[in-house]
Design a protein around this nucleic acid. Sequence first.
DNA 1: TAGTTCCTGTAACATTTGTTACAGAGTAGC
DNA 2: GCTACTCTGTAACAAATGTTACAGGAACTA
Lengths: 211, 211
Amino acid sequence: MIREKLDNFYSYVFEKELLDEIEQVGVYKKLRENELLVDLGDQMKGVPLLLDGAIKIVREDKKGEEILLYFLEKGDTCASSFASAISNGKCGIRAIAEKESEIIFLPKEKLDEWLVKYKSWRNFVIDSYNIRLNEMMETIDTLAFMRMDERLYKYLTDKAQIMRETSLNTTHQDIAYDMHTSRVVISRLLKQLENEGKIKLHRNKIEILEF
Amino acid sequence: MIREKLDNFYSYVFEKELLDEIEQVGVYKKLRENELLVDLGDQMKGVPLLLDGAIKIVREDKKGEEILLYFLEKGDTCASSFASAISNGKCGIRAIAEKESEIIFLPKEKLDEWLVKYKSWRNFVIDSYNIRLNEMMETIDTLAFMRMDERLYKYLTDKAQIMRETSLNTTHQDIAYDMHTSRVVISRLLKQLENEGKIKLHRNKIEILEF
DNA sequence: TAGTTCCTGTAACATTTGTTACAGAGTAGC
DNA sequence: GCTACTCTGTAACAAATGTTACAGGAACTA
């Protein structure tokens, strides 16, 4: 069953021999919605490959203030974990399942070994880092160049896409946490977006009318 | 002469055999102050190893608005170039020599080959990515959690450290470009920092009194 | 020396974002 | 039903940041 899911997304990415090895040493895990996968300061013992679901990656500073960095989807891995695992360093982020998700955990002992053995693994690791770097740059663009109303609309449409829904079950307060602002600001801007006809507001739910 | 500079910073990082190879295939280049090393959209033919100097990495969006991402110092390499070189993709940043700098350019053909051959190269590449990811996170922290006056003070002290000077030769307008704000805002906040006794303002020069 | 350009300081004002306070609607438990 | 709690909407105000306009000093050129 694991092999089936693995093949589903990774058969075009990895060589058969590598898939065999992953099947042998990888540990399958199912995550409940809102389950914590990685916490700030964790020392990773391996890296997760995401088979299905969506995982939210959040940054937190010393004062406990949070901001959403990006989401992981199936086929992604967490570059930050990779970093932490291979260098025995600490992880600077928090990862939370945004909905029920499935992962395979790869033990860190194999990570370097596979870099030598499999070209597809090297490509995957380098690609993952690149995707993450680009994702971070997009986050920086958003923070540096966009106003709060634009950021909010982007947040809503991005998240809808990741969740594969046109409605989001969330509260204004939750959004405020992700965007590191206050609930009142979010309520104000959501109402504005509703007046522009882009969304429709309900209790605990936001319907997106325009993408 | 190149070998000497290479050994200077990289003899503890790379195996002797790798240093030999780098010496053979690497192309030494000297950069003048303000020389453009990488431009937005460039397709990199290799990666630069920084031997000496300081390089500013800047992000630019479609509308031509800029923001400083971070600085590279000796011993660093540009992860974004690595990404671009190995995957034949485009580079999302601009790199400018902040002062006279020296680099060695490594041709992209070797990058993957060395990953297989040298453990020290694998470590270096992974470390570089990690450093860059962390640098990006720090930039995000700065943008998301700090007010403009704090960001400005951090900018000044960070830059002084990179340049190994206690005074910066720069104008308010240049700072405004790096921080993606307006000259008037910077002048206002600089004056405030001067009143707090942290800096002293001159024409084209800012003296930092307190680190 | 006069003319010109660049850099800095500052005022006045506009806009955006953050804060506090409170009212009312919806929901869950009893 | 009643009660307690959560979520949303909104007003009024405060603070931070951005914009426009202009004046004067410094530096360079002729």
